[in-house]
């Protein structure tokens, strides 16, 4: 037992307690330091160097990477693409998520089965989700084109992933499908804690179902939606797997978001320093949302 070892005379019980606390947190601090803090600092250091990935040889170049990155316009284009992707897929996630949560909050038939079916995509590997959707979107044999042609919506097969803006819309839809269950779970949990008395009071005051939603439900959901939006903004912004596997950033650079550039620079173009500069710049943009979430979450935890 560690605290027996600490029962030396001369140490007050309070000090001994603090020491035990430090002992328990020590593995966490060591590991976080080694795999996160140190790499994070190295990433910042790397961004001031030029490193050729295969040989890992590099030298200091100062701010050259940043100058190139901001000057060439590649960064700004990718930032815009990232913003469009994030805004688009997040909007879909929130709309579908809230609507689905409201429906699942009702006493519908086979509710628990419906819940399981709705939540499952979130737990699925992105690789599986992408394979399935690429098959659905397949231009020759995909069921989406078949169904739309059968319904008379389109005359000829649509190239869903190989043309713009289809590719962007397609990944937004897949992103929404994969991640909206997060919104459902969060909103559903909150819905279940809204006291029934609020609705009864609203009913006595003469509110119909629609004004009950806007006057009772929505205000109650505001806090949880704020947190969900912040969290999902951060996560969608940094999404790599889904976009990389759906389109690889294409067609041309139509869906090339910032995380994809970082990867391309580091392991495609073998410019590790440049990749780090992109990564650090991207993180600075994200910092606004991260800090906003941190502040909210700390407040909620306190």
């Amino acid at each position: 037992m560690p605290d027996l070892a600490l029962q030396r005379p001369g140490l007050s019980r309070e000090r001994r307690d603090a020491l035990l606390g430090l002992l328990l947190i020590a593995p966490t601090v060591l590991v976080l330091g080694a795999v996160i803090v140190y790499p994070l600092l190295s990433a910042i250091a790397l961004s001031f160097q030029s490193v050729y990935t295969p040989t890992l040889e590099g030298h200091w170049v100062g701010l050259a990477n940043y100058r190139e990155l901001l000057g060439a316009g590649g960064f700004w284009a990718a930032l815009l693409t990232t913003a469009i992707w994030t805004a688009g897929t997040l909007t879909l996630q929130i709309l579908i998520g809230v609507a689905m949560a409201l429906l699942l909050h009702q006493n519908i038939l086979f509710r628990s089965l419906a819940r399981s079916l709705v939540l499952f995509p979130y737990f699925l590997s992105t690789v599986v989700a992408v394979l399935v959707w690429r098959w659905l979107f397949n231009d020759l044999y995909g069921i989406v084109n078949h169904a739309l042609m059968a319904a008379g919506v389109i005359d000829a097969p649509v190239n869903w992933l190989g043309a713009m803006p289809n590719a962007m819309l397609s990944i937004m839809v897949v992103g929404a499908w994969k991640f909206f269950p997060f919104v459902v779970i969060a909103v559903l949990a909150r819905l279940q804690t809204i006291p029934e008395a609020l609705y009864e009071a609203a009913r006595i005051d003469g509110a119909g179902p629609i004004s009950r939603f806007f006057d009772v439900t929505l205000p109650q959901l505001r806090d949880v939606l704020t947190i969900v939006i912040l969290l999902r903004t951060v996560w969608d912004f940094k999404e790599f797997d889904l976009i990389y596997l759906m389109t690889g950033g294409g067609p041309v650079n139509g869906t090339r978001t910032l995380p994809l550039i970082v990867y391309q620079q580091a392991f495609g173009l073998n410019q590790m320093g440049m990749a780090a500069a992109y990564a650090v710049s991207m993180m600075l943009v994200m910092l606004v949302f991260m800090l906003a979430y941190l502040q909210r979450a700390r407040k909620a935890a306190a």
Partner: peptide, 16 residues
Amino acid sequence: TYLLPSVVLISPLYLM
């Protein structure tokens, strides 16, 4: 760190 993007850490981790 829970919010940190993997792509930021990936190059240094690879080197390490």
